[in-house]
Design a binder for these strands. Structure first.
Lengths: 331, 331
DNA sequence: ACGCAGTGGTTATACGTATAATCAGTTGAT
DNA sequence: ATCAACTGATTATACGTATAACCACTGCGT
């Protein structure tokens, strides 16, 4: 009942062959010369015993683990991130790698890197905020071939996948101005986890607004009705708002309705993410959808390159995201 | 530049001691007799080399891994699940375990179990739908001490953590009847991932409704405005609706408003989850909040028990969730 | 008869770690 | 002076796997 897990040696004994033969058969190594009947005997014995190889032992022997670690706890969890993760998982497992999420207790920097390094992964993907130069050095020293930072800006120390937040802001602001807005506001969330991305979206909006001669107000907003109500004079002064995302847009539309400000009559509104709730709002919400469908396969390919080559890659970045405007009634 | 990762033997050489001494010092084993100065030398050498132990080798030697796998892809991701996961992570790492999310490519049954078993985890938590009897046997055979099913109902084959969905439905229905509703409806989502939980919530609501002599209509609803509009005669026939969760409640409130049905005047509405959007709806949404704050520490303790004892535990279950009614304006 | 290539395996070893077993010195009690 | 107990280490080994190196045997051309 409480026996030890069967090993390849157990399989070998049952099949009447040597342990080496078992290894050759089960991994079907190209060069191995084993007769078909022996192969069958080995496979059957493995099946009977319920043999499952010991990943740790294999890693120890080969020096490579096939394990890819991803730490998502910098990146906001949403349907978007989940879907992307699933697809990435599929792409990587197809290539023989195992994708595993490991947040490392919200550690960051070197302590987080040490925790990851213990597992001797072949690649680590982590929020840019968790990877400083020393942390990357720890990972490299532990044999991690590919270190990729995920975040809003590219990293100077390693390859990275950056989300083009500025592009989102630019798209939203451009649309508002196209609709005739003469003064606009852009929301920057006050929440620590979101503020940085808010700043980036703001900067993109600001760039477009300046280029087209439209004044832009920055609105630092905590996610609460009181917070939104406290800025009522801001919303009354402008005729267009980029609300950072759909949740904030819903918050604002609720508060504006209570205050008697008409959307889009008095102020046009644009969100981001194209959440299901966007079409449920009245008026229906114009939003920026981020198309990430191209991202998993691109990232998987890039990872494969990085893991195969010997030298650590020069820091570069890809941003395989495509912001698309979905125009509805609120703008 | 591309050197191999430093081993405990490298540390030993630099410190001028044996590899065994390094192991004793870095794990500071209670019985080990090593002088303080030697300890210091070893620690310094390890620091200098950036030594990180090799988890695979350690697992191989000791036979235990400290790795706990959780597969969340049955359980719906939301702020609730995320928060719970973080707290569970904290509880387990405090006890010396490493919590890792591993979805296993959405495999289920034996194939998923084999993938998990390769890592020789000490515990596996997975959606009840992924764990059939054979899968559990595979895990047990691979030395997994604790196998815990997560889901809406208890498992006959292993310990489980069940969410008391029936209790949620009962609480919501009881509240509606308290408010004077004489005929109520309960939403069951048509989405494959949610339907089962919807059935459980429905059953709880039905139990209470029958006990109090109130007719209850089941409403199978896909998440779309067309779907909700197609059932308009249902909503018109009842004076209370338990909407499964807040998202569905928002969908219904939007459609009902468009159709001229007043909430709560014509029909009272109760959601579930207490999402931020619940307070942003007009009228503000009455909802069932699930208090999961007690869950992580309870689960961690239970896991610890299971992992320490030798015999596989008899299937039992805990449901450390506390549904709480949050009454607002919609009911 | 002899080498020689091909077939179907086996033997031996290393990966990095934890730990039981051992050992050389030193101290202390009698 | 002798033995026991303690201190501070070292030596040796096993965990499960992959793979290089080796080996016995058969068939075959000369």
């Amino acid at each position: 009942m409480n026996a030890k897990p069967p090993t390849s040696l157990d399989v070998a004994r049952l099949a009447g062959v040597s342990q080496a033969t078992v290894s050759y058969v089960l991994n079907d190594r190209p060069g191995a010369r084993v007769s078909d009947e022996t192969r069958e005997r080995v496979r059957e014995a493995a099946e009977r015993l319920g043999y499952v190889p010991h990943a740790g032992a294999r890693t120890l022997r080969t020096g490579r683990s096939g394990l890819i670690l991803i730490s998502m706890d910098d990146v906001p969890y949403g349907p978007l991130a989940i879907g992307m993760l699933e697809e990435l998982d599929r792409e990587l497992s197809r290539r023989g790698y195992t994708l595993v999420q490991y947040g490392a207790r919200r550690l960051r920097g070197v302590p987080a890197a040490r925790a990851w390094a213990e597992l001797r992964p072949v690649a680590v993907l982590a929020g840019a905020g968790k990877l400083d130069e020393q942390a990357v050095a720890v990972l490299r020293s532990a044999g991690v071939k590919a270190v990729v930072a995920l975040g809003a800006h590219s990293s100077a120390v390693t390859a990275s996948v950056v989300v083009d937040h500025a592009g989102i802001g630019a798209l939203a602001a451009g649309h508002l101005i196209d609709r005739g807005c003469r003064t606009i506001a852009a929301v920057v969330p006050a929440e620590p986890g979101l503020r940085e991305m808010g700043e980036h979206r703001l900067s993109g909006a600001r760039r477009v607004a300046e280029a087209r001669g439209v004044p832009l107000t920055r609105a630092d907003l905590p996610f609460s009705e009181e917070g939104a109500a406290a800025l009522l004079d801001v919303w009354r002064r402008v005729d267009g708002v980029f609300a950072y995302n759909d949740d904030y847009a819903m918050l604002l539309m609720t508060v504006l309705r209570d205050a008697g400000v008409a959307v889009p009559g008095d102020v046009r509104m644009v969100g981001c993410d194209d959440l299901p709730l966007a079409t449920l709002l009245r008026p229906r919400l114009t939003t920026v959808r981020i198309d990430v469908s191209a991202m998993p396969s691109l990232l998987a390919r890039r990872l494969e390159e990085l893991m195969e080559q010997e030298a650590p890659a020069e820091p570069d970045h890809i941003h395989p995201w495509n912001p698309v405007l979905v125009v509805r009634e609120s703008s």
